[in-house]
Deep mutational scan, measured.
Amino acid sequence: HNLTITQGKLFFHYNPKLCLSEIHKMEEVSGTKGRQERNDIALKTNGDQASCENELLKFSYIRTSFDKILLRWEPYWPPDFRDLLGFMLFYKEAPYQNVTEFDGQDACGSNSWTVVDIDPPLRSNDPKSQNHPGWLMRGLKPWTQYAIFVKTLVTFSDERRTYGAKSDIIYVQTDATNPSVPLDPISVSNSSSQIILKWKPPSDPNGNITHYLVFWERQAEDSELFELDYCLKGLKLPSRTWSPPFESEDSQKHNQSEYEDSAGECCSCPKTDSQILKELEESSFRKTFEDYLHNVVFVPRKTSSGTGAEDPRPSRKRRSLGDVGNVTVAVPTVAAFPNTSSTSVPTSPEEHRPFEKVVNKESLVISGLRHFTGYRIELQACNQDTPEERCSVAAYVSARTMPEAKADDIVGPVTHEIFENNVVHLMWQEPKEPNGLIVLYEVSYRRYGDEELHLCVSRKHFALERGCRLRGLSPGNYSVRIRATSLAGNGSWTEPTYFYVTDYLDVPSNIA
Results as ranks from 00 to 15, higher is better:
residue 210 T to G: 09
residue 217 E to H: 07
residue 217 E to N: 11
residue 220 A to R: 05
residue 231 C to W: 01
residue 235 L to Y: 07
residue 236 K to G: 05
residue 241 T to K: 13
residue 242 W to S: 12
residue 244 P to Y: 13
residue 247 E to F: 12
residue 249 E to W: 08
residue 250 D to Q: 13
residue 256 Q to V: 10
residue 257 S to Y: 14
residue 270 P to T: 15
residue 272 T to G: 03
residue 273 D to P: 15
residue 275 Q to D: 05
residue 281 E to T: 12
residue 282 E to R: 04
residue 283 S to Y: 14
residue 284 S to L: 11
residue 286 R to F: 02
residue 291 D to S: 03
residue 298 F to R: 03
residue 298 F to D: 01
residue 299 V to S: 03
residue 301 R to V: 06
residue 302 K to T: 13
residue 302 K to Y: 14
residue 303 T to R: 11
residue 306 G to S: 12
residue 309 A to S: 15
residue 312 P to A: 05
residue 315 S to M: 09
residue 315 S to Y: 09
residue 316 R to H: 06
residue 327 V to R: 13
residue 329 V to R: 06
residue 333 T to N: 09
residue 334 V to Y: 09
residue 340 T to V: 09
residue 342 S to D: 13
residue 344 S to I: 11
residue 348 S to L: 09
residue 349 P to S: 07
residue 353 R to A: 02
residue 353 R to E: 11
residue 357 K to H: 04
residue 360 N to I: 08
residue 360 N to Q: 13
residue 362 E to R: 14
residue 363 S to E: 15
residue 365 V to T: 05
residue 366 I to G: 01
residue 366 I to R: 13
residue 367 S to A: 12
residue 368 G to H: 07
residue 371 H to G: 10
residue 375 Y to G: 02
residue 376 R to I: 14
residue 376 R to W: 05
residue 379 L to C: 07
residue 380 Q to P: 01
residue 388 E to A: 10
residue 393 V to P: 15
residue 395 A to M: 11
residue 403 P to E: 02
residue 404 E to K: 14
residue 406 K to G: 08
residue 407 A to D: 05
residue 408 D to P: 01
residue 415 T to P: 04
residue 421 N to T: 10
residue 422 N to I: 08
residue 424 V to N: 02
residue 424 V to L: 08
residue 425 H to G: 06
residue 427 M to R: 08
residue 427 M to Q: 08
residue 427 M to T: 09
residue 431 P to F: 02
residue 431 P to Y: 01
residue 434 P to H: 07
residue 436 G to W: 02
residue 440 L to K: 04
residue 442 E to A: 10
residue 443 V to E: 00
residue 444 S to A: 08
residue 444 S to L: 07
residue 445 Y to K: 02
residue 450 D to L: 05
residue 452 E to L: 13
residue 454 H to Y: 14
residue 454 H to P: 08
residue 455 L to P: 01
residue 462 F to P: 03
residue 463 A to H: 05
residue 463 A to T: 12
residue 463 A to G: 12
residue 466 R to M: 13
residue 472 G to I: 08
residue 474 S to A: 10
residue 475 P to A: 09
residue 484 A to I: 15
residue 487 L to Q: 12
residue 488 A to M: 08
residue 489 G to I: 01
residue 489 G to F: 06
residue 490 N to L: 15
residue 490 N to W: 15
residue 492 S to F: 02
residue 500 Y to T: 09
residue 500 Y to P: 08
residue 506 D to K: 12
